[in-house]
Computed example of a mutant assay.
Amino acid sequence: MSGERHRLDVWLWHARCVRTRSVAAELVRAGHVRLNGARVSAPAQPVRLGDVLTIALTGRVRLMKVTGFSERRGDAQAARETYLDLSEPPRDGPDVQESPE
């Protein structure tokens, strides 16, 4: 299983990082995705288990470790099983409590 790999654009789509596979391919071509720290521009770039992706999405950077693959795009729960989110939580969300001064 360690030799298993998938196309980067397909993995991004299956992991529900984007709405369509064509948007995933454009995100990669535009240089908004790094694979193990190196910028990639080919949507067909292979992704393997254990790889770490840095993805610049609208106003946020996500850091995701690939933990699995799926044969098709499933629901959100199935998508969450394909990665480990290493990103820092957003700072300006409603759950953030401000410290008293």
Rank of each mutant, 00 (worst) to 15 (best):
H6M: 14
R73F: 09
T54N: 06
H32V: 00
Q45K: 13
G31V: 01
A30H: 06
S99R: 15
G3S: 09
L27K: 05
A56Y: 02
W11D: 01
G59Y: 07
R5L: 09
R62E: 11
A30L: 08
D95V: 14
T67E: 14
E88C: 01
S99N: 13
M64C: 08
V10L: 13
G59Q: 08
V40F: 13
T67V: 11
G74A: 08
A76K: 02
W11E: 01
T20G: 01
L27P: 05
P46D: 03
S70D: 10
L84Y: 07
V66Y: 07
T82E: 12
V61Q: 12
L84C: 10
D75H: 12
V96F: 15
V96H: 15
H6S: 13
G93W: 15
L8P: 06
P90H: 08
P90F: 04
R72V: 07
G59D: 09
A44Q: 12
G37D: 08
R16S: 02
I55C: 09
A38N: 12
A25P: 08
G37V: 06
R80F: 12
G68Y: 07
V33H: 02
A44I: 02
G59M: 06
R72I: 03
P43E: 06
E81R: 14
G74D: 04
E81H: 14
A44S: 14
L57W: 11
T54I: 07
A25D: 07
G93V: 14
W11P: 00
R72D: 04
E26I: 02
